[in-house]
Each structure stands twice: as C-alpha cells, then as structure tokens.
C-alpha cells in the first residue's frame, strides 16, 4: 500500500524545549489515521509542520511521494484539505461567501460549495453571517472548507471540538465514510482514545513529542490480552505449587497473574490450593482496556 505521508526524524524545538522529537510517521493511502496523544504532546505542531505552517527544526516530510519544500509546498497542498485547531472563518461574511474564497483560491467549480454545505448539513444556514454561527456550526463550516475540491488527503486537528454528542457522532460517521466515498485519506488528531477507536483504521500515538506506537488499530487491540488474577492467603506458596502443576504465574501487587487458562484448569488449581490449606480469596478475569494501554504507552501521567 502506498504511503501518503512519511516523515523522517521530524523535530521541532522552541528554544531548548523539544516539542516534536524524531517523528517517523507513516500514513497509508485510504486510511483514517488517528493521531492520538495527550494535550501538549505535539499533535498540532506536527500537523502544522505537515502543512508547512510551521518550519521543522530538522527532519524531512514527504507527501504524495514528494518532499515538502518551500517551493513545492503550495502545489502539493492543492490536494490537501485541512482544519487545524479552531475553524478559520470570516465572521462578517456568510457561510457561502466564506466558502467562495476557498473555492476560488482552489480554482474549483462553484457547484462544489453547495455540495460540501450539504455534506456538513449547513445548507440552511449558508446565507447567515458566520459571526452568528454556534461553535459547532463554525466547526462544520471549517470541515466544509477542508472538503472543498475533494482533496486526496484531509488533515483534521480535533474536528469534534465544540460539537454536541449528535454532532460528534455525525462527524465521526462522515470522516469514516470519506475514504470509501471519495477515495480520501484522513489524518485526524484527538486526545480522546474512544473517538479514535471508533473511526480510525490506523493509529499513531504521540507522547512528549515522540511517537510511542504506530500501526493498524487492531494491533493496538491485540495488546489488550485477557489474564486471570488470583488472590490467595499465601501467594508465595501458591505460586510455587501452581508452577509445579505447569501453570506459570507472576506476582503483581497482592495478586498472582495467570495466563487465560481453561475453566477446568482453573478449577483444578483452586482445588489444589484448598487441599494444601491455602485459602483462595478472589479470582478475577481481567482485560487491559485501551485506556490502560494508552496510559502505559504515554507514561500515564497526563489526563485524557
């Protein structure tokens, strides 16, 4: 599969503070790439560097197989739609007038304005001045501007900000449908794992400016393996006995962690421990949630 965005050792420093550190992104064509990270991890800075709005301190960015240089930037960005941080708009103009600017600068047919307005459900409010729009409507107008020209690549930075739950779901479904409907590749950043989990096919996790995970989303799910947690009256002796029976286990706090064994095996273990006078206090089936994995990967010191 073709890689649409590739960065090699991408860095951004502000003075001595390292904002993005040796980032090697790989965004495959046709993917919805979830760019996930806690607040301040460097997501927006990375996306701005991809669009040439911020200059990298070092490293290389390759989009559509071509390096993004000062000279090539605008030509490459003809096929890229973007919505970075808060939506961009002219409050004194109507929604349609706002889109007319993007349509003209992109040199696209005027009919596309109506199409993208319908896509984001803003047709009714197209003649209203944007200063009177709610935050959610402004966000949808920003998405409409990004969609104008049906670009090959869509870069969306926290696109669900300011939307109500219904709007979030609608936006999510729209983003998910874009690769199939228009052949787009979407890079969507968020600090909410659940959001990325519901719409991405691929995921990159950034923490403190470094990429800590990058792969297809199901690979992240694979990390959430089941295990059995067992608490006894004497964990040390119990671990020794279970080991002799061929059930490997390791101690974790007040529990013994066992692999996901069959019910029958677990029953035998329990009986064995009781016979040897070791009381079984608690047996739990555990699964690592995506949140746990995310927190493990990002150091767990930041809020989601």
């Amino acid at each position: 599969m073709l890689t649409l965005i590739e960065t090699n050792n991408l860095c951004k420093k502000y003075g001595k503070a390292v904002c993005v550190n040796a980032l090697n992104l790989r965004v495959p064509e046709g993917a919805v790439y979830g760019f996930l990270g806690p607040n301040g991890a460097g997501k927006s800075t990375t996306l701005k560097m991809l669009l040439g709005l911020t200059r990298p301190t070092c490293g290389e960015i390759i989009v559509f197989g071509r390096p993004v240089t000062e000279k090539e930037r605008i030509r490459l960005l003809r096929d890229v739609g973007s919505l970075i941080e808060s939506p961009s708009y002219y409050g004194h103009l109507t929604g349609e007038e706002n889109l007319r600017i993007v349509q003209t600068l992109r040199d696209r047919p005027a009919r596309e304005i109506g199409e993208v307005l319908a896509l984001v459900r803003l047709s009714q409010a197209k003649d209203q001045q944007v200063s009177q729009y709610s935050l959610g409507m402004k966000q949808r107008l920003g998405l409409a501007a990004a969609l104008l020209g049906y670009p090959k690549l869509l870069v969306l930075d926290e696109p669900t900000n300011g939307l109500d739950p219904a709007g979030i779901q609608e936006m999510r479904e729209l983003i998910r449908s874009l690769p199939a409907r228009y052949g787009m590749t979407v890079v969507v950043s968020s600090h909410l794992l659940s959001e990325i989990d519901q719409m991405a096919t691929d995921v990159g996790i950034i923490a403190n400016g470094s990429l800590v995970f990058q792969d297809e989303l199901h690979r992240l799910h694979e990390r959430s393996a089941h295990h059995i947690a067992l608490r006894t009256g004497n964990n040390v002796l119990a671990a020794e006995l279970l080991g002799q029976e061929g059930v490997p286990c390791r101690a974790a706090e007040e529990y013994l962690i066992l692999p996901p064994v069959e019910d029958g095996t677990l029953g035998q273990c329990s009986t064995l421990l009781c016979r040897r006078g070791i009381p079984v206090l608690r047996i739990e089936e555990r699964q690592k949630s995506l949140e746990d994995i995310f927190l493990d990967l990002t150091g767990g010191t930041v809020s989601l």
Partner: peptide
C-alpha cells in the same frame, strides 16, 4: 484584522503563499 479575528491565516497559507 479580518485574518486575525477568524484565524484564517492557517487556512489561507495552505492555499496561497
């Protein structure tokens, strides 16, 4: 000021230099 008010520079500078 129209560009500052609506944060439009980050959109415009992806469309023109």
């Amino acid at each position: 000021d129209v560009e500052h008010k609506g944060n439009t520079l980050k959109l415009l500078e992806t469309l023109q230099t």
